Amino acid sequence: MLQPFGPNIWIVDGSDVAVAGFRYPTRAAVIRLSAGGLFIWSPVHLTDKLRTELDALGTVRHIVAPNSLHHLFLHEWKQAFPNARLYAPPRLQKTRPDLAFDAELDDESGTEWSGEIESVVMHGNLITAEVVFFHKASGTALFTDLLQQIPAGHITGWRRLVAKLDLMVEPEPSVPRKFRIAFTNRGAARNSLKRILDWPVEKVLMAHGAPVERDGLAFINRSFKWLKP
């Protein structure tokens, strides 16, 4: 069920996905652009109910995979909305040659949403090149896997210990340890982070974790304090 998150932005929580025995909650965001088209960030499983709600909002024009790990539901969305443009982050097109992407995201992506949504590729990470977005009207930054918080009840036994060591069950969402280690080019990452910190962020959305609804810029600063020189 779509939940309003600010002016012309909604969120919807999808079903859990299992990766190596870990259960991850999923979340998508829907942004209605000024021209009326819908921008879909990090698609979750497309149910009939969700499709009905989307049809009531507008026409799906842009389907965005924000990093190379979030591609599980792209095929069903493209089948449901064949006229929508499908966007890949860096590295994903090689992983999913079965999908006909219309464009690869970069720091200058999206002329059709420029002025409403900005983007920065978080460079320097071996695991994934994540594209971070900023929706101006709502003051919302959208992270995918670089910030996470897994509910404690989702993980038990030895996997809970692994999650704790990976900083995935902290009191507030944080950058998992594996992603911190994977930032082998810290200079490139810092340059990307500097651009993100220039945004007037009020709120932060994540694919896996409770949304931050106030003092978003301070939260991002805390979360990436370890990256700063």
Score class of each variant (00 low, 15 high):
residue 188 A to L: 03
residue 177 R to N: 06
residue 221 N to F: 00
residue 85 R to P: 00
residue 18 A to H: 13
residue 222 R to Q: 09
residue 108 E to F: 15
residue 161 L to N: 12
residue 94 K to N: 12
residue 86 L to E: 09
residue 4 P to I: 02
residue 202 E to F: 02
residue 185 N to A: 05
residue 57 L to F: 12
residue 136 K to D: 02
residue 213 E to V: 15
residue 107 D to R: 12
residue 21 G to K: 10
residue 86 L to W: 08
residue 219 F to Y: 13
residue 25 P to L: 01
residue 207 A to Y: 04
residue 56 A to L: 06
residue 44 V to S: 03
residue 98 D to F: 02
residue 97 P to S: 06
residue 71 H to K: 09
residue 167 L to N: 02
residue 165 L to P: 01
residue 74 L to N: 11
residue 54 L to Q: 14
residue 220 I to D: 08
residue 122 M to F: 14
residue 160 R to Q: 13
residue 124 G to Y: 11
residue 122 M to C: 15
residue 56 A to E: 10
residue 139 G to K: 13
residue 172 E to V: 13
residue 144 T to N: 13
residue 94 K to F: 04
residue 53 E to G: 01
residue 93 Q to A: 12
residue 193 L to K: 00
residue 85 R to Q: 13
residue 92 L to T: 10
residue 93 Q to H: 03
residue 225 K to R: 11
residue 94 K to C: 03
residue 16 D to G: 01
residue 205 L to H: 08
residue 15 S to D: 15
residue 150 I to L: 14
residue 189 A to T: 14
residue 6 G to L: 13
residue 216 G to I: 08
residue 209 G to W: 08
residue 90 P to G: 01
residue 207 A to K: 14
residue 96 R to E: 03
residue 191 N to T: 05
residue 161 L to I: 06
residue 106 D to I: 01
residue 121 V to G: 06
residue 146 L to T: 15
residue 16 D to A: 06
residue 208 H to T: 15
residue 187 G to H: 09
residue 163 A to D: 05
residue 174 S to F: 08
residue 71 H to S: 03
residue 169 V to K: 03
residue 51 R to V: 00
residue 17 V to Q: 07
